[in-house]
């Protein structure tokens, strides 16, 4: 994890994540002999450059979360190719994808998904430990300090507020210095004020660590903070990439 100097060098952004003609359909038939399938994603193509931040927006049911789970290697596409750091995720089995996640990926979830029976500190240590990092504890303390929770390290998730829980989750996501961070509605369970704080924190850390960020959200304030926004509808991106670029510029100005 510590030996990725080329990625952090931003002068020459490489493609970290690439999707080619990715589709996802699920069988909705009540019994297995029927062949009723529902297409959730239709021929998705996308590229994410290293260090980029991208927001995928769209209505509920448009397929954005499904796309996120494919990109992060949590699930496999029905067809098409996905490359993360040049690794062909679509050809990997569950174990290989675990390895990819452990080495390159960080997560932030809408419902925080902290482990209730571990303290804030131990929750944050988890990914670093899984990567066999001997300094897991020290790093976790530093991360918790960065998210402003140095006085809550020994607290259990149930003793923390929603915002605090999400801050712990952010600390957990960044501790192993991932190449790419996926966030699924990171502010979805929070009130707008707390949401803003979390957004601020997320981008601040993202900037500091030069992480690539892919997030799925309904929250336009969060979306505009990203360099690029992709809108999904009924399983496909609906804006041509040129328009998206234009939109991005407008939003950047607004946000600035």
């Amino acid at each position: 994890m510590n030996t990725k100097p080329d990625l952090k060098a931003k002068n020459e952004p490489e493609t970290i994540l690439e999707c080619r003609n990715v589709t996802k359909s699920v069988n909705t038939a009540s019994n297995k002999t029927d062949e009723k399938s529902l297409t959730i994603l239709k021929a998705i193509d996308m590229q994410v450059k290293s260090g980029e931040s991208i927001a995928i927006i769209g209505a509920s049911g448009s397929g954005k979360t499904t796309l996120l789970s494919l990109l992060a290697g949590l699930d496999l596409p029905s067809s098409g190719e996905i490359y993360l750091k040049g690794l062909a995720l679509h050809q990997f089995d569950e174990e290989q994808r675990s390895k990819v996640r452990a080495d390159h990926v960080g997560f932030i979830f809408q419902s925080f998904l902290l482990i209730n029976s571990l303290t804030a500190l131990e929750n944050v240590m988890l990914p670093a430990e899984l990567a066999n990092d001997d300094n897991a504890k020290l790093k976790a303390m530093t991360m918790l300090e960065k998210v402003g929770l140095s006085d809550r390290v020994e607290h259990y998730p149930s003793q923390l507020s929603g915002g605090e829980q999400q801050r712990v989750a952010i600390a957990r996501a960044f501790i192993s210095n991932p190449d790419i961070l996926f966030a699924d509605e990171p502010t979805g369970n929070l009130d707008s004020k707390t949401g803003e704080t979390i957004t601020e924190l997320l981008f601040q850390l993202n900037q500091q660590q030069g992480t690539t960020l892919v997030l799925v959200t309904h929250d336009t304030k969060l979306a505009v903070r990203c360099q690029k926004q992709l809108t999904m509808d009924a399983g496909e991106f609906i804006q041509p990439s040129g328009a998206a670029l234009e939109q991005l510029t407008i939003n950047s100005v607004k946000a600035g």
Partner: peptide
């Protein structure tokens, strides 16, 4: 169950 899922998402293998 939730704990195992989180572990897996964090990249823990089987």
């Amino acid at each position: 169950q939730p704990m195992v899922a989180v572990f897996k998402a964090m990249g823990a293998n089987k």
